[in-house]
């Protein structure tokens, strides 16, 4: 555990909680892509099946349980409790264009050809692109609530911090996971445009709106 890894995890946790609180307090999931949230629930489920097979630490287990629990709670709020506020018309990204190629890639390029390992790889690949429906929705409506941008910033920072963590682990532990690193780079690159808008607009007190 190093500072990048810990702050990355906490940033991830903050993102998840910001989103849950935003929906809960406003009693609305307007502007939130339910499809991205379903993808994240799939990501956590596929990755954390090792909860049943291996124990790493109390920290590791509790974070996994919290992430999974919050992911399903978010999906429940969007598709059940506050379904009336869900903006399905603008959430029109075709997720099969992500899930199918990513599934194929996980079968082809993995560390070990075993069911759990392929599911882990699938979750790593899927996570790297799972935010695309949300970014697509924002580009379609041309705007995002400020609280939604805070959510996206924390979520994007999490994998960015993990990149620093991997550099650290490579130098100090000789640890090196090519699949996670490449997917993490892709994931971070997808946020670059958003990071730019966040710093130049949201941090200066303006609402995030895109030119028509």
């Amino acid at each position: 555990m190093n500072i990048f890894r810990l702050t990355g995890d906490l940033s991830h946790l903050a993102a998840i909680i910001i989103l849950l609180l935003k929906i809960w307090k406003s009693r609305s999931c307007a502007g939130i892509s339910g499809k991205s949230q379903i993808l994240f629930a799939i990501v956590f489920t596929a990755r954390y099946l090792d909860l049943l097979t291996s124990f790493i630490s109390v920290y590791n287990t509790s974070m996994k349980v919290i992430y999974i629990g919050c992911a399903y709670a978010t999906v429940y709020l969007i598709y059940a409790k506050f379904r009336a506020t869900y903006d399905g018309n603008h959430d029109s990204f075709r997720v099969e264009f992500l899930v199918v190629p990513v599934g194929g890639l996980a079968v082809l390029i993995n560390h070990t050809f075993s069911p759990l390992e392929i599911l882990w790889t699938f979750s790593i690949y899927l996570e790297s692109v799972a935010i695309l429906p949300q970014l697509f929705m924002i580009s379609k409506t041309g705007e995002a609530e400020t609280i939604t941008t805070h959510y996206l910033f924390c979520l994007g920072m999490y994998r960015t911090l993990y990149l620093f963590n991997w550099v650290w682990r490579f130098y100090f532990e000789g640890f090196f996971d090519m699949i996670a690193i490449v997917a993490g780079l892709v994931q971070t690159v997808l946020y670059c445009d958003f990071f730019y808008l966040y710093v130049t607009k949201v941090l200066k007190g303006k609402k995030l709106s895109l030119p028509a």
Partner: peptide, 10 residues
């Protein structure tokens, strides 16, 4: 080789 690789990250 091991069928299961331990993944210690989240």
């Amino acid at each position: 080789h091991a069928l299961e690789i331990p993944h210690d990250e989240l």
